[in-house]
């Protein structure tokens, strides 16, 4: 049985604002299915009573004090932006 359907891949793509051709959708579905099948092997283990591991380290309360430090120079902030104007990133209009 497949672990993921074309419809699910389409839905996830839509959430990520990605658009794929029919061929691509099929290809990615197959690839994702293979990945999920591989990871799915873990399900054969008995994890009854084992707490999920959310983090690699087991510490709590990692804080910083409320102190302002210099921000990134504006040239660096916008260095990778395809388009910027007076420090602001320019993107296709969103309303």
């Amino acid at each position: 049985m497949a672990h993921i359907t074309v419809e699910e891949v389409e839905h996830v793509a839509q959430l990520a604002r990605l658009r794929f051709s029919k061929d691509e959708l099929e290809e990615f579905t197959n690839q994702l299915d293979a990945i999920l099948r591989f990871v799915g092997k873990l399900e054969s283990l008995d994890t009854e009573g084992v707490e999920p591991t959310y983090r690699a380290i087991e510490i709590v309360n990692c804080f910083r004090e409320d102190v302002v430090k210099p921000s990134l120079p504006i040239e660096e902030v916008t260095a990778n932006a395809p388009e910027s104007e007076e420090g602001a990133f320019v993107v296709p209009r969103i309303i």
Binding site: A88, F89, V91, P92, R93
Partner: peptide
């Protein structure tokens, strides 16, 4: 911030 004339938005 949405531009009044051009079809772009500015991100701050």
């Amino acid at each position: 911030i949405h531009d009044e004339l051009r079809p772009v938005s500015y991100v701050d």
